[in-house]
């Protein structure tokens, strides 16, 4: 696609802005900022990826994945406001998931050990893990607020932090995974996923594109489960004070 053709896509942005002005939604500024940011970020990433793909050096791959994990942890951490140390715990959970996922994908020769495969697939799974982490924290907040009585009843009976919050953790892990599982059930029927669409548009064989999409869907499910479970295990103590009371949030 030429840059002139790309510039025509701004018509979509203009339509959105006109609708916003017409309906007095007051979103014009946000749309403008979002447009500029997404264009600059994606173009920048494109050039960075071009450089990394050419150099084919593992250090660059590690740096890019580390940046992805850090940004994901920072972003998802906003959902855990008031929980001291939640961001590094999210980073740890996503990092463990990434190591396990890539270990399996590369170890079983499912994908080639080149940046062209490792970086996009890592980006997608880390992105999904970020969403799952945010959902898990949202659900946990609601659980702790609505089940304070149940948790305190267990504490009163001499339960440990883990025992007192176990049911809430289980429910939150389950809830955080539901969108991923629902997405798996309807993939291809309701929408053609981004990766597959991108490959087909770029000229790839649709069946080949579908194979990679299946890989991504399965990887998403596994990464959602792993991230949510690891995060629940490393973060449950944060909902309590040192002397085992429910922490005020």
């Amino acid at each position: 696609m030429s840059y002139i053709a790309l510039s025509f896509t701004l018509i979509f942005v203009m339509i959105t802005m006109l609708v916003s002005m017409w309906q007095k939604l007051d979103l014009e500024k946000d749309i403008a900022i979002g447009t500029i940011r997404s264009a600059v970020q994606l173009l920048l990433v494109g050039y960075v990826l071009m450089f990394v793909f050419k150099s084919n050096h593992p250090v660059f791959i590690l740096v890019i994945i580390s940046v992805m994990i850090t940004v994901a942890a920072w972003s998802a951490g906003k959902r855990g406001k008031g929980l001291s140390g939640i961001r590094w715990r999210i980073a740890l959970s996503i990092g463990c998931t990434e190591v396990l996922m890539m270990g399996l994908l590369l170890g079983l020769h499912i994908i080639e050990a080149t940046p062209q495969y490792i970086i996009p697939i890592s980006g997608m799974t880390i992105g999904n893990a970020m969403v799952v982490s945010g959902l898990f924290l949202n659900h946990m907040k609601r659980e702790v607020e609505s089940n304070q009585g149940e948790i305190e009843t267990l504490l009163c009976l001499g339960a440990s932090a883990r025992q007192a919050i176990q049911d809430s953790l289980k429910r939150s892990v389950k809830s955080s995974m539901i969108p991923t599982i629902d997405g798996m059930k309807t993939v291809g029927l309701v929408q053609l996923p981004g990766m597959m669409t991108g490959m087909i548009v770029a000229g790839a064989d649709p069946v080949e594109a579908v194979r990679y999409q299946i890989l991504i869907v399965f990887a998403f499910t596994a990464s959602a489960a792993m991230t949510s479970i690891i995060l629940s295990l490393v973060s449950y103590r944060l909902w309590f004070t040192k002397d085992l009371r429910l922490a005020p949030l």
Binding site: L155, L157, G158, A159, S160, D243, L244
Partner: peptide, 10 residues
């Protein structure tokens, strides 16, 4: 706290 709450229960 766990041992305390086994002795003093609310």
């Amino acid at each position: 706290p766990k041992e305390w709450r086994k002795k003093i229960c609310y």
